[in-house]
């Protein structure tokens, strides 16, 4: 009798274990393709453990301004852009925590555009989902989702994201199966090459404007990120990439700079160094908010130099890592050449 009970128990555990494995794999496969930078997380998970020196967070700005192949080629820094469309401050700690599960970066770079808003915006589920829906299943993920919302039906649809996306079976292709482990090698480590050029007006000078407080909830989220990184002993660098800001945003940017520097962190406001960076507004942007490939190279050089100068990073890498990153650089140049020809 006892033998039979044990058999049933073990059988049930194995059955449920396989079911859980299949559930997770099918969830990963069912995740949508077009929800922001969908491969950012999968690409990050595909990185070899403990090979990244810098991990960058932020909205679309981060993967349009920070050119990872150039950072490697010129400064020997291995980096990954863990940016997602309209990424908000509320995911920063969750991303930092996720980063530390597989990587031990010397530095986390945060693009600060999402902290400054023209108007107060409420929580955006879709922006949160752009990160959480692509993360690996874990208890931490459940913890952060539970903290994000009190709405149980939203929590369930975020935790078990297949509830939200299962209808995408209609778009399923056999090649989607490669996503079953939520890993996908990225060619350029989260960097997106864009070759179009749209001349922009030179921004007005609002340097005389007084600082204006940012959203208190987001300020709190900023402090939580700082606390987390302090506890984990990881350096933080906040970067405001160049773009044409309104007066209101410039004022909030100043406030942001104040509170960040007050805590002893670097705040690199690229908008104050346009000439030094060499930005040409008639050539270096592809839309009003993002640089093209040429503009991004200039910004990356500037940030790379700054990192080298102000942060003590261990940039020694093993042979495999060097080989991989040389391949990335080559791939980038090839792409760039092809893009230029077009």
């Amino acid at each position: 009798m006892i033998k039979k009970e044990w058999k049933n128990f073990v059988g049930s555990v194995v059955f449920l274990g396989i079911a859980a494995f299949l559930f997770v794999s099918i969830s990963y496969v069912m995740r949508p393709v077009d929800l922001g930078n969908r491969d950012a997380m999968a690409g990050f998970y595909a990185e070899e453990d403990n090979t990244l020196d810098v991990v960058a967070f932020g909205s679309s700005a981060i993967y349009r301004f920070l050119n990872n192949p150039i950072l490697w080629e010129e400064y020997g820094i291995t980096s990954y852009n863990l940016g997602t469309g309209s990424q908000q401050p509320d995911v920063a700690v969750m991303l930092a925590n996720e980063t530390l599960k597989t990587q031990k970066p010397d530095l986390i770079l945060v693009e600060t555009r999402s902290f400054i808003k023209e108007e107060k915006e409420g929580k955006s589920d879709i922006n949160f989902r752009r990160v959480s829906d692509y993360m690996n299943y874990s208890f931490d993920r459940i913890k952060y989702i539970t903290a994000y919302t009190d709405d149980w039906s939203l929590r369930i649809s975020m935790i078990f994201d297949i509830c939200f996306y299962h209808e995408l079976w209609k778009e399923f292709k056999i090649t989607d199966l490669y996503r079953a482990d939520n890993k996908k090698d990225t060619e350029l480590k989260g960097w997106e090459c864009i070759y179009e050029c749209e001349p922009q007006e030179v921004p007005e000078d609002y340097s005389g404007v007084m600082p204006e407080a940012i959203d208190p909830e987001e300020e709190q989220e900023l402090y939580e990120l700082m606390d987390f990184c302090e506890a984990e002993e990881i350096a933080l660098l906040f970067v405001a990439t160049p773009w044409k800001m309104t007066e209101n945003r410039v004022a909030q940017n100043k406030y942001l700079e104040q509170i960040i520097t007050k805590r002893g962190y670097h705040f690199l406001n690229c908008n104050d160094y346009i000439d030094e960076i060499g930005i040409d507004y008639s050539k270096d942007f592809y839309d009003s908010m993002h640089t093209n490939v040429w503009g991004a190279e200039k910004v990356t050089h500037f940030i790379g130099k700054f990192m080298k100068k102000h942060f003590d990073m261990d940039l020694s890498h093993d042979e495999e890592t060097v080989k991989e990153w040389n391949r990335v650089a080559e791939s980038y140049h090839e792409k760039k050449q092809n893009g230029e020809k077009e």
């Binding site: 559930f23 099918i26 039906s153 649809s157 297949i162 509830c163 939200f164 299962h166």
Partner: peptide
Amino acid sequence: IIFGQYGP
């Protein structure tokens, strides 16, 4: 899970 019509 996949073909059922439920959820958001």
